[in-house]
Every structure is written in structure tokens, then in C-alpha cells.
């Protein structure tokens, strides 16, 4: 058999104006994960920090530097050895800060 993969659309044309956390997502079955962020409209700066959790309730930063986005476009980063749960902690800062995004989580065995 071929290996499993799955793409979850975590946020769909969502607009954020300050701090936010994406919904918890279970990924224990996957060996690798890659976040994709499509910044559609952006005023200010969008920063995204990957977080991990043992239970989907209590979270800590995964350890890598935040992804900082200042221009619309598609951005991505990969994670490995992340345990069972993933989410992003985000923040939008600056004058009249606003970010409209699509966020994808791509998982592969």
C-alpha cells in the first residue's frame, strides 16, 4: 500500500485582528507535517508560532522561530517529531492590523 496523507483546511478565509489560536488537530499518525499559510489580505504583520500538546488542552511552543509575514502570498514550514497534536498560535500587529488567511495542515506518514 502507499502511505497515507491528509490535507486539513484549518482556517478558510478567516480574518484575524489580534492574537488567535487555531483549533487543535490530531496528527499522531503522521511522521511529517507542513503548514501552509496563504495570506490574502494583510495590514500590519502576521506572526505564526507552531505549538504542540500532549492532550489537545495544554500547549507549548514547538521550538522553532515564528514565521513572520509582512506581504500577501503563500508561506510554509515543516515540522517533525511533534507528538500527537498541532496548532498555530498567531498574532496580527500594527496599525489597523488585519490578516485574512487560508491555513492548511498537510500530514504524511
Amino acid at each position: 500500500m502507499v502511505n497515507n496523507s491528509f490535507t486539513a483546511v484549518i482556517e478558510k478565509n478567516s480574518t484575524f485582528t489580534g492574537p488567535f489560536d487555531t483549533e487543535p488537530y490530531e496528527a499522531a499518525w503522521a511522521h511529517e507535517a507542513r503548514w501552509f499559510i496563504r495570506a490574502m489580505d494583510l495590514q500590519g504583520t502576521l506572526s505564526l508560532t507552531p505549538q504542540v500538546s500532549p492532550d489537545g488542552l495544554f500547549w507549548c511552543n514547538e521550538g522553532r522561530d515564528p514565521l513572520v509575514i509582512r506581504q500577501p502570498g503563500v508561506y510554509s514550514f515543516a515540522l517533525r517529531e511533534f507528538g500527537g497534536w498541532l496548532r498555530l498560535h498567531g498574532d496580527v500587529t500594527g496599525e489597523q492590523a488585519k490578516a485574512k488567511v487560508l491555513i492548511y495542515l498537510v500530514l504524511k506518514e
Partner: peptide, 12 residues
């Protein structure tokens, strides 16, 4: 309506 997940039913 949220993406479905493959869960291991893991609890705190």
C-alpha cells in the same frame, strides 16, 4: 464545518 481527524482518543 471543520476537517475530520484521525484520532487516537488521547486524553489528559
Amino acid at each position: 464545518m471543520r476537517p475530520p481527524q484521525l484520532s487516537s482518543c488521547t486524553f489528559f
